[in-house]
């Protein structure tokens, strides 16, 4: 069977049709650009947290859930994420005159080793804060299980990072945790968070 176009194969599209095709591409490009803009606006929308007592002002993603009920100053969590939900937590600890930063991190490690499954410290490093001062950081990993025994969820490996700095007679610890699969991507959020942190 021959392919019968019913029209002359030499037929060309008219200038008007050429324009309509060009405008269609333009519309799609503009539409996608607007979609990108809307995505960025939604993902980068932030809320401000202020705690006069602790002297902390922080911006955090507006979609994240704020919690002040624990033994920390505040914690924000990405509840929209499936599996382990990325979190940023801030706590302040009183310090003595001879306290070293490393002691606080070791203390945290001892506490966590008792409550977190397969808690492992991966290493220590220094972290440059926006005001050009240096803080100490500790990276670690552990296995997170669903707290509900009725949900047959698969455990996930979580990577964490503590950033500790000593200021005004107290130690400020910023804790960041995310599923190991998205940890690198989520680090951008932590950097953005620290960039907008006032302490």
């Amino acid at each position: 069977m021959e392919f019968d176009t019913g029209r002359s194969p030499a037929i060309q599209i008219t200038p008007r049709q050429r324009w309509s095709i060009a405008l269609s591409y333009f519309l799609i490009a503009i539409g996608l650009a607007l979609g990108l803009n809307q995505r960025d606006a939604s993902l980068n929308m932030s809320s401000v947290y202020r705690n006069v007592e602790a002297g902390i002002t922080a911006s955090y993603p507006a979609r994240w859930l704020l919690d002040e009920s624990g033994d920390y100053v505040f914690r924000v969590r990405d509840m929209s994420h499936r599996g382990y939900q990325t979190l940023i937590e801030m706590r302040t600890l009183p310090i003595g005159p001879d306290s070293a930063e490393r002691n606080f991190l070791d203390h945290l490690s001892l506490q966590r080793a008792q409550v977190l499954v397969d808690y492992t410290v991966l290493g220590y490093d220094s972290y440059r804060l926006p005001d050009e001062t240096w803080a100490i950081s500790m990276s670690y990993s552990f296995v997170a299980r669903d707290p509900s025994p009725f949900l047959e969820g698969v455990s996930s490996i979580v990577n964490g990072l503590d950033i500790l700095t000593l200021r005004r007679g107290q130690a400020l610890v910023i804790t960041f945790r995310a599923d190991s699969g998205i940890y690198r991507r989520e680090l951008e959020t932590l950097r953005w968070f620290i960039q907008h942190l006032e302490f």
């Binding site: 049709q17 309509s20 405008l23 269609s24």
Partner: peptide, 17 residues
């Protein structure tokens, strides 16, 4: 509309929208 009726150039993009 664009090909058979040779409609104005805005018709095809409007349909895509």
């Amino acid at each position: 509309e664009s090909y058979f009726s040779d409609a104005i150039p805005l018709v095809l993009p409007m349909n895509l929208f």
